[in-house]
Amino acid sequence: MTSEATLPTTSASPTARQLWTRSRGVLLAVVLLLVGGVVIAVVRSSAHHGRLDPRSADPYGSHAVAALLAERGVSTRVVTTLDEARTAAAPDTTLLLAAPDLLTRRQQDRLRQATQHSGGRTVLIAPRTSLEGLLPGVSAEDPTPGFESLLEPGCALPAARRAGTADTGGIRYVTVASHADHCYPSDGLPTLLRLPAASGSGDTVVLGAPDILYNQQLDEQGNASLALQLLGSRSHVVWYLPSLSDTSATASGSRSFFDLLPPGWLWGTLQLFIAAGVAALWRARRLGPLVPEKLPVAIRASETVEGRARLYRKARARDRAASALRSTTRTRLAPLVGVPLAQAHAPEALLPALSAHLHNDGQSLHPLLFGPPPGDDAALIALADQLDALEREVRRP
Score class of each variant (00 low, 15 high):
Ala384Trp: 00
Ala389Phe: 14
Glu84Phe: 00
Ile381Cys: 10
Leu34Ser: 01
Arg313Lys: 13
Ala349Trp: 12
Val297Pro: 05
Ser45Glu: 06
Thr81Cys: 13
Arg286Asn: 11
Val394Lys: 06
Gly25Glu: 03
Leu354Lys: 03
Ser327Thr: 13
Ser149Ile: 12
Arg283Val: 07
Leu261Ala: 07
Thr168Ala: 15
Arg255His: 12
Asp83Cys: 01
Gly164Thr: 01
Gln113Tyr: 05
Gly371Met: 04
Ala280Thr: 14
Gly338Phe: 00
Glu393Arg: 11
Asp388Lys: 05
Leu230Asn: 08
Gln108Phe: 04
Ile299Tyr: 09
Gly137Trp: 13
Ala66Ser: 04
Val123Asp: 06
His179Asn: 10
Tyr60Cys: 04
Ala159Arg: 06
Val339Arg: 02
His63Phe: 13
Thr168Glu: 10
Glu391Pro: 05
Gly264Asn: 02
Ala382Asp: 15
Pro289His: 00
Arg110His: 01
Ala321Trp: 13
Pro296Glu: 10
Ala276Arg: 10
Arg77Cys: 03
Gln216Asp: 12
Ser13Ile: 06
Arg112His: 08
Leu261Ser: 09
Gly362Gln: 00
Ala12Gly: 00
Asp203Gln: 12
Gln217Pro: 00
Leu226Glu: 02
Tyr173Glu: 14
Pro347Gln: 02
Ala309Thr: 03
Leu333Cys: 08
Gly307Val: 03
Thr76Trp: 06
Leu68Pro: 08
Arg110Gly: 14
Thr204Gln: 00
Pro190Thr: 09
Ala384Phe: 14
Gln107Tyr: 14
Leu97Gly: 02
Thr115Phe: 14
